[in-house]
Amino acid sequence: MTTSEEFGYALNFTLNGSPVTTEVAGNTLLIDLLRDKLGLTGTHLGCDTSQCGACLVHIDGASSKACAVMAGDLDGADIVTIEGMAASDGKLSSLQQAFQDHHGLQCGFCTPGMIMSAASLLKDVPQPSEAQIRAHLDGNFCRCTGYQNIVKAILAASGQEVEHV
């Protein structure tokens, strides 16, 4: 990270597979950089208290709350947001498709965080149990679905039966 006269700090990192060079102020949050500066508004700001998980992204492969990470800490990082989940031609990932197939969303506000959270679980545990899914979603709040169809979608995306849920 180097100092830039105009904004404070020059940053270089990888965002959804592409290199990004930008400038931020010392007090810029990752979520503000993503939404306001880079125009990636899929990452949502929900609770503003770092509890709801709507702003979940992956930093160097680890799920992280974009509202609780300073942009200045991310020089050289590899960041993936919800915009990086679908293929470049717009074809949804199998996880996103499962959310659509199983109606794993209603208003959709929490969905980007849900997808990023579920993706991080499936990376570590390819076939999670229902209990593991519910425990993993502890940090993602949904106020519409009651979680039932979200759990179904994640089970389906991992190739498991959903009838019993």
């Binding site: 680890a62 992280s64 609780a68």
Partner: peptide
């Protein structure tokens, strides 16, 4: 502690 995202940071 917290949730998985908190534990990662």
């Amino acid at each position: 502690i917290g949730d998985h995202a908190v534990r990662n940071r």
